[in-house]
Design a protein around this nucleic acid. Sequence first.
DNA 1: ATTATCTATAGATCTATAGATAATGC
DNA 2: ATTATCTATAGATCTATAGATAATGC
Lengths: 225, 225
Amino acid sequence: MVEDEAVTRHDRRRMQTRALLVESACAFLASDIGSRVSVQQLADRADVGVGSFYNHFANKEALFDAATAEILTEFGRFFDGACDGIDDPVVLFAHGVRMTAHLLESHREMSEIVMRLGFEYLAKDTALAPRAAAGLRAAAESGRLRIDHLDTALACTAGSLLGCLHLLAADPSLDVTRTVSALAAGLLRMFGLDDSTATAAASHPLEFRPRRFGAAPRCAPATLP
Amino acid sequence: MVEDEAVTRHDRRRMQTRALLVESACAFLASDIGSRVSVQQLADRADVGVGSFYNHFANKEALFDAATAEILTEFGRFFDGACDGIDDPVVLFAHGVRMTAHLLESHREMSEIVMRLGFEYLAKDTALAPRAAAGLRAAAESGRLRIDHLDTALACTAGSLLGCLHLLAADPSLDVTRTVSALAAGLLRMFGLDDSTATAAASHPLEFRPRRFGAAPRCAPATLP
DNA sequence: ATTATCTATAGATCTATAGATAATGC
DNA sequence: ATTATCTATAGATCTATAGATAATGC
């Protein structure tokens, strides 16, 4: 498990402890417990002493902030990797929406956390918002979508996406692929595309490419104690 | 402050204490503090002894459940009153969406709580979901909207609505009426209406009728200590 | 006499730290 | 010798109750 030889073993051990704590926080965030958890429980799940917790974070909030930031960064990497190399801006937008909704299958824990974060974080200048904004702007400038007010369009995109994620998470019997394509097509119609064009753009086969930055998920799917 | 003469004064006093506690819970729910508040603080804000709290609720969760239920009931009353007497199902749907978004101006506290509850409650069989479902079903049966999958349509409706509420709450400089009409028109396009018909249906003047059940809001707008 | 409320507090957390122990660096 | 970790715990909450006080019913 060699990572970098400029750093000492102390540093590596330290980083590992920190990562264990972040992983623990993610597992709780993805569960229905969320952030209503004691430092003791967080440390226990990471199999780390409580003292070590405070060696890395000033308090619980700092840990959850770090965990959130890490998840959003990872989401961004995933998104960029999944949308890399698509030229048509309309297809690109639809693709991004569909891939994000498919998180539920490919990255369950990440999607649970994204659902929990909701609008507070998704709509901020990290993660989804800037990417969806760029996609929509490009599509609007190409003249194929009509976006009257970008922020409203973003709010509807993020909201519909979150709504469908909740729907899919609550009802496992639903056909994810169909639902997700219907979502993307619906958004494209909302933004002025006619039905057949929208349906076509939302039905391009999805490629689950290997990610360029091949880091393993920081927060591995894990069961709680 | 006579309410009902079949009940004794004891009962009335009891009900008042309970109402004060519920009101306190609503005020916290509508603030950024939310439910992360101690029983002591809840009782203090209601100007009630801590002992009285446990005379009415088994624990904090029970109080917040009651507060939530009351807010959703009140939301339902508001919604039904606001949409009463509209015949055209398409206009009705658009009207419901617009009035709900206008909560931010007419019932700030209620809308803050609705935003906080998010999908967990809005999508359940209380409050918004059954009403939006009825509207969409009627509009689909009339043949004017095309709803492929009702639950997906509901998820997009609730999500876009919540997204726009967050947007409007975060940026007070936005024109609420315009944004809200754009939202309703966008949803109608999503559900298959052409642009000009959608825009027209989403631009009918909104009547803020007096409510038939003229109860005062349970949770009056209130500042926190 | 009954019922609702209030005040004070026991007991159970939970946070954050101090001091001891183990691991690494040199 | 230095650094990270662990264990144990002081002090600060916070919950829920017991017992006293005030208000109402009859």
